[in-house]
C-alpha cells in the first residue's frame, strides 16, 4: 500500500521534470502531489522548476536550424584554413 502511493524525492523530481514537458502520467502526478504535501525540499524544487519553465516560455528563445549551423561551420572552417595558409 505504502509503495503504491508514496514515492521518494528522486522519483518526485523525475515526475516534476516530466510534468514540465507535460509528459508525466496522471497517476505519477498524483503521487507527486501527495509527496509535495509533506516534503518541503521538493516543494521548493518544484516551484523553482516551474519558474524556470515560465522564464523559458516568456523569453521566446529560438534556435537556428541545424542546416544553417552546418553552413556556418563550413564557412568558418574554409575561411579559417585560408587565413592560416
Amino acid at each position: 500500500m505504502r509503495k503504491l502511493f508514496f514515492i521518494d524525492c528522486s522519483k518526485a523530481a523525475e515526475c516534476c521534470n516530466k510534468s514540465q514537458y507535460k509528459e508525466a502520467k496522471p497517476l505519477d502526478k498524483m503521487k507527486l502531489f501527495l509527496h509535495l504535501t509533506f516534503c518541503q525540499a521538493c516543494r521548493k524544487f518544484s516551484s523553482k522548476n516551474s519558474k524556470l519553465t515560465e522564464a523559458i516560455k516568456k523569453s521566446k528563445i529560438q534556435s537556428c536550424s541545424e542546416e544553417q549551423k552546418q553552413a556556418w561551420r563550413e564557412q568558418i572552417k574554409k575561411e579559417f584554413a585560408e587565413d592560416n595558409v
Partner: peptide, 18 residues
Amino acid sequence: DPNKWVDKYSDYLFNYTI
C-alpha cells in the same frame, strides 16, 4: 577558437539579432 563559434554562440547571436 573559431571552430567552436557556431556550437557555442550561434543560438545566442541569433536570438540577439532576431
